[in-house]
Design a protein around this nucleic acid. Structure first.
Lengths: 128, 128
DNA sequence: TATAGCAGTATACTTTAGTATACTGCTATC
DNA sequence: GATAGCAGTATACTAAAGTATACTGCTATA
């Protein structure tokens, strides 16, 4: 099961396309990646997340947290304190997203290296 | 260089965040994944891509192809036939996106399996 | 000579995503 | 008794993304 499922896509196109769609959905919009990213470092409360993600509004954060919860990526735990304490945490499945993020990081880094090498001659004629 | 760059993110947060952002950008919007997906099977002409992606309009296809070209993910080759023949192909870097798609596929499949197991008891009480 | 296919572009529009601002009830601290 | 923090919600708005429809010049085929 480990590798090269992609080349078998013609065997089962529909469910493969749906699976990829699901992953894309997990990161959709401006705020889901930062939220997942910050929760990869451990469970956090609403205000903590809000503080760690610059410029996010409580409306957006609330909306995205609900969305991620509905999709089984995070779980929400309410503690019966007063006022209530609420903690958000990645589910088992949510934590597995680190593998996808890892692949994204790897690609992004190599892509930047590749593009830099391509731009280098241009930069040299500019400074020469 | 192979693995576990994520846990070193605190060493170099900015460039890591930018790298992940780049990858996210590569797939941004409704149409980039289908376009990249179809080009992973080989170079194609404009109308071919249009035919293979249901409901895409030429305006959207044109816009997204330009975007992907500017980002160094695909290359555009014009042949001096009349009328012109144009071929789109993934760049070396673009082809590497298959690794990311692979990771997305893998996560999506496992996530669906996990969620199905979770929903199974509910389905059973419904049908019982 | 009319029609269809290629590789798109132009204009106008609708839909969705995201922002701004103000507000809720609750309680601990100043 | 006023203020601040928690965990959000409500209303109104702007900006971005995507759609619909029609059109271009070119040429091979019917």
């Amino acid at each position: 099961m480990a590798a090269a499922t992609l080349k078998n896509i013609q065997k089962c196109p529909t469910s493969y396309v749906l699976a990829i769609q699901d992953t894309l959905n997990a990161f959709q919009g401006k705020w889901k990646m930062p939220i997942i990213g910050t929760l990869l470092f451990g469970k956090k409360r609403f205000k903590e997340i809000e503080r760690e993600i610059p410029k996010i509004t409580p409306r957006m954060l609330s909306q995205e947290l609900k969305d991620l919860e509905m999709n089984g990526i995070i779980s929400r735990t309410v503690y019966a304190t007063s006022p209530v304490t609420v903690e958000y945490e990645l589910t088992k499945s949510g934590k597995q997203l680190s593998k996808v993020v890892e692949a994204m990081l790897e690609w992004g880094l190599q892509h930047r290296r590749a593009n830099m090498l391509e731009l280098l001659p241009i930069l040299q004629t500019k400074t020469a």
